[in-house]
Structure formats: C-alpha cells, structure tokens
Simulated scan of single mutants.
Amino acid sequence: MAAEVSRSRIVVKQSGGTAKPSAGGFTPVDPNWKPPACWYEPLVTPQQFKAATESLKKGDFFSVNFGRRWGKDLLVDAFDKGEPTFTDTPTKNYNIGKEGMFWRAVAREDRANDSEILDCSENLFWQDAGTVPDVPNAPTPDVLAAYAYDKIRVPETEVELKPQGRSTVNLPTWVWLDKAVFSDVTVRAELPNTPLYAVTTAKPVALHLEPGTEDAKTFPASGDCPVNEDGSIGTPYAKGASQQDPPCGIAYYRATSGEPYQMKASVTWEITWKGTGGAEGSLPDGTFETTQDINVQEIQSINR
C-alpha cells in the first residue's frame, strides 16, 4: 500500500553504552504499546519539486500520499498552474522564490500496510519554512522520541560469573556487571528542515536471571538484581565468599550431563526523552536478553 512513501527522513544518532551494541533492539515490556503509525515530513523544495515534475515521462507517477500517485499533468495543474481541484494548498510555479517545502505523509516501515496510516490523509502540501503544519498527525517531539525508541541499540555483553567456566553443585555462582560495562544509551532524533528533535535515553535499571533449569535457586529469590548506585549490578566475588549467598547469583542443585544449562540474563532499560521546547516524557521500559552456557559439576571427594 505505502512502500514508496514509508521511508522517513528523520536523522538519528546514538551515543553512550560502553560495550558492543547489539544487532537488534530491545523488547517493550508493554506488549500493547504502539508507536504512531504515520506523520508528515518535509519532502522537497520548490526547485526540487519542479525538476522532479518536469522529469516525469508518460506513464510515470509521483506519490502524493499512501496509494495516491499523480501523473505529470495533474501535478502541473495543482502546483504550477494553481488549480485547487485536488489539494488544499495549490501553488503557482511550485512556489519558487518562497521559503518553505512541500510535505508528505510518512509511515513507519513496520506499519506500511496498517490501516491506521490512512489517518494521515492529506495529499502533498506546502508549508512555510520554520513552521510545522497544524494538522492531525503532524510531527511532534514525542513522535520523534517514539521513532528513536526503535533505533536504540543497547550493549550485548555477557555477565561476569564466579566461578568461571564451571559451577559446582550447591555452591552459589556469583553474577555481576561492572559499572563500566553498562551505561546510559541516548539516541537523538531530528527532523531536517524543522526545529523538531527528541533525545531518548535508555537507562539500565535491573538484571533478571533465569537459571535454565528448575533444579536451581536464584539470589534474590525473584531473580531480579537491581542496579547499584554506582551503576554496577551485583557484587564481584571476593576470595573466601564461596559459602555466602551472593546479592546476585544462582545455586545449581544438579550437575549438567553433556548439555550445559542455558542461563538467561535480561537487562531492563528505563526509557525517557526530552525534546523541542522543553517537552519531555517516558516510553515503555525495554528488555534485552542474552543466553550463556553454564556447566555444573559435582563436588569430587576421595574416600580413604
């Protein structure tokens, strides 16, 4: 329906996060959260639009909205001759000499065939420079924040374990993340040729552990390890602490036999944003999960 007009011109730039970023985004905690399906963006200057129209050959079309494509004659009538038949903002000579741009609806790429994009029903229209259209589904800082949400790439880093390599039945395995491993991740989203921007920040707030077997116990019992004040998670193992309960960790009650346990470690990220004109808000928390192999051995004893 809208493949040719689903590519946004929003520019995003990520910073922060000291570890290698993941290839994919995180999963919203709220499964019912839906970002805006469509909005409007600046598309072409008067000179660019005139050149694009004049270059059209017979049978060529220019998309003016989702599923609406106009040929050269209709574009000339509406935007060169100024006939208001098919647009609320007809122009003469493509408004060459005026400051501004022609705007068009844009759909999120993952919602390009969603019926909700039809809420952005305006055909290609003129907008003066430095202004934002006063229409439903006009772009706003929170629209940019939601767009940036999907572009956040949080670190994909394995948690630290002690003992490393092989755990022992009934002895706790300590789990932690150093404060240098995880830090806030920010994504700035800007809409070119407008004053609109939003800076979306993802802050790690908790680590959740799943042992990969029912024959285990997590510390704390919920498996939720909070982030410490200094940004670290859990506490590094110290010599002589093998019999103590770790603030974050797992005790396995059965040894592995051939296949390791698949321990899952998921970090929850709290998402907030700030944007143009002092606007600010929050978005659903996101989680990112990694899996690590855990081998567990029995304690070896010698009978004499």
Results as ranks from 00 to 15, higher is better:
residue 237 Y to F: 15
residue 207 L to R: 05
residue 289 E to T: 14
residue 81 K to V: 05
residue 151 K to Y: 09
residue 30 D to N: 12
residue 277 G to S: 08
residue 227 V to I: 11
residue 69 R to L: 02
residue 63 S to D: 07
residue 171 L to P: 01
residue 177 L to Y: 14
residue 205 V to T: 14
residue 89 T to K: 12
residue 28 P to E: 05
residue 224 D to P: 00
residue 91 T to P: 02
residue 139 P to A: 15
residue 126 W to F: 05
residue 58 K to V: 07
residue 139 P to L: 03
residue 215 D to G: 07
residue 50 K to Y: 09
residue 290 T to L: 09
residue 134 D to C: 00
residue 85 T to W: 09
residue 228 N to I: 03
residue 119 D to H: 05
residue 266 S to L: 03
residue 104 R to Y: 01
residue 256 T to N: 09
residue 273 W to L: 04
residue 256 T to Y: 06
residue 8 S to V: 01
residue 254 R to Q: 15
residue 135 V to Q: 01
residue 169 V to P: 03
residue 80 D to Q: 12
residue 61 F to T: 11
residue 28 P to T: 04
residue 247 P to E: 14
residue 75 L to I: 04
residue 217 K to Q: 15
residue 230 D to H: 06
residue 141 P to M: 08
residue 147 Y to V: 01
residue 78 A to V: 06
residue 121 S to K: 00
residue 285 D to V: 00
residue 293 D to Y: 05
residue 189 A to G: 10
residue 34 K to M: 08
residue 282 S to D: 10
residue 56 L to E: 11
residue 150 D to N: 10
residue 153 R to W: 04
residue 220 P to R: 11
residue 86 F to M: 10
residue 260 P to E: 12
residue 6 S to Y: 00
residue 127 Q to E: 13
residue 260 P to I: 02
residue 153 R to S: 09
residue 47 Q to P: 00
residue 212 G to Q: 11
residue 206 A to E: 14
residue 16 G to F: 07
residue 169 V to K: 14
residue 233 I to P: 05
residue 114 D to G: 03
residue 30 D to I: 00
residue 46 P to A: 08
residue 229 E to G: 14
residue 243 Q to S: 13
residue 284 P to V: 02
residue 290 T to R: 13
residue 205 V to S: 12
residue 19 A to E: 13
residue 288 F to L: 11
residue 144 L to R: 03
residue 265 A to P: 05
residue 302 I to W: 09
residue 263 M to Q: 15
residue 18 T to P: 04
residue 76 V to I: 14
residue 298 E to I: 01
residue 274 K to H: 09
residue 213 T to Q: 14
residue 140 T to F: 00
residue 129 A to W: 03
residue 111 R to M: 12
residue 153 R to K: 15
residue 207 L to V: 10
residue 142 D to Y: 02
residue 83 E to K: 15
residue 127 Q to A: 03
residue 184 D to R: 11
residue 76 V to Q: 09
residue 261 Y to V: 05
residue 230 D to A: 07
residue 255 A to P: 07
residue 83 E to F: 08
residue 67 G to R: 00
residue 154 V to S: 09
residue 205 V to Q: 09
residue 51 A to Q: 15
residue 104 R to L: 01
residue 236 P to N: 11
residue 91 T to D: 11
residue 44 V to A: 12
residue 192 P to S: 07
residue 288 F to I: 04
residue 104 R to I: 03
residue 83 E to G: 01
residue 283 L to W: 01
residue 41 E to K: 00
residue 161 L to C: 07
residue 231 G to P: 06
residue 143 V to S: 04
residue 157 T to V: 06
residue 176 W to P: 06
residue 30 D to M: 01
residue 198 A to F: 03
residue 246 P to S: 07
residue 12 V to E: 11
residue 133 P to V: 02
residue 283 L to Q: 04
residue 274 K to N: 13
residue 26 F to R: 10
residue 160 E to G: 05
residue 161 L to A: 06
residue 36 P to H: 06
residue 87 T to N: 08
residue 90 P to L: 08
residue 49 F to A: 11
residue 143 V to M: 01
residue 296 V to N: 10
